[in-house]
Simulated scan of single mutants.
Amino acid sequence: MLSGCAFRTQLVTQGQRELFDYWLESAGQRPMPARSDLDPLKVPRLLPHLGLIDIREGVSRALFRLAGTRLRDIYGQEITGKRINEVFSGDCAAYWSRVHTRVAETGVPAHGVVRGPAEGRDHVVLFWLRLPLSEDGGRVDRILCHDMAGPSEADVAAEFTLYHYPRVQPQDFPLSRRVQFS
């Protein structure tokens, strides 16, 4: 298992690092904070990227209690109030089930990058972070999510094209007359 410092260095986005730092600070000496320890107003710029999954009835019955406005863009639908099997279906369902089950069972944060976070969203590259929460200090009852869409390969290629200037080859232009210097 990674230390908090080692885990933090693997986080890709600044938002992930900010949320992880806040999560650690909120936990104090406990392994993880409770939902009641968190004040969303302490991380206002992250709110559009945050989600809260309630797993008190088990991962198979988990649902999104809250979902920031950017999550609607990422998943292509409003996910607040939806069960996770409604959000993560098709080919990606098993992947997300493993992620959420591991966080729930171990109480350890997880992060990653995935293309196509939901069915029909293959154009989205998602940088995700999952942080466990526990009201009793032991059993994980909620998972705090940070999801941020990154540029796709097509976006990167388009951006590269905008700023990449082709090399101009020198051409021979015939001079209409010769100039002599004395």
Rank of each mutant, 00 (worst) to 15 (best):
L2S: 13
L2Q: 12
A6T: 06
Q10G: 15
L11R: 07
L11K: 06
Q14R: 08
Q16A: 14
F20S: 06
F20L: 02
Y22Q: 05
W23Q: 09
R30K: 09
L38I: 09
D39R: 13
D39P: 02
L41C: 06
P48F: 06
L50Q: 09
L50T: 11
G51F: 04
L52C: 10
I55A: 12
G58F: 07
V59N: 05
V59M: 08
L63V: 10
R72K: 03
Y75V: 00
E86D: 10
F88G: 00
D91N: 00
D91W: 01
C92E: 14
S97A: 14
S97W: 14
H100M: 12
R102C: 06
V103F: 14
V108E: 09
R115H: 04
P117S: 00
D122Q: 13
H123R: 07
L126I: 07
L126N: 12
F127I: 06
F127S: 10
F127M: 02
L131Q: 07
L131T: 05
P132G: 10
P132Y: 10
S134V: 03
G137K: 03
G138K: 10
G138N: 11
C145S: 14
S152R: 04
S152E: 01
E153P: 00
E153W: 02
D155N: 05
V156H: 09
V156M: 10
L162Y: 10
Y163H: 14
H164R: 14
H164L: 11
H164V: 06
R167E: 12
F173L: 14
Q180M: 11
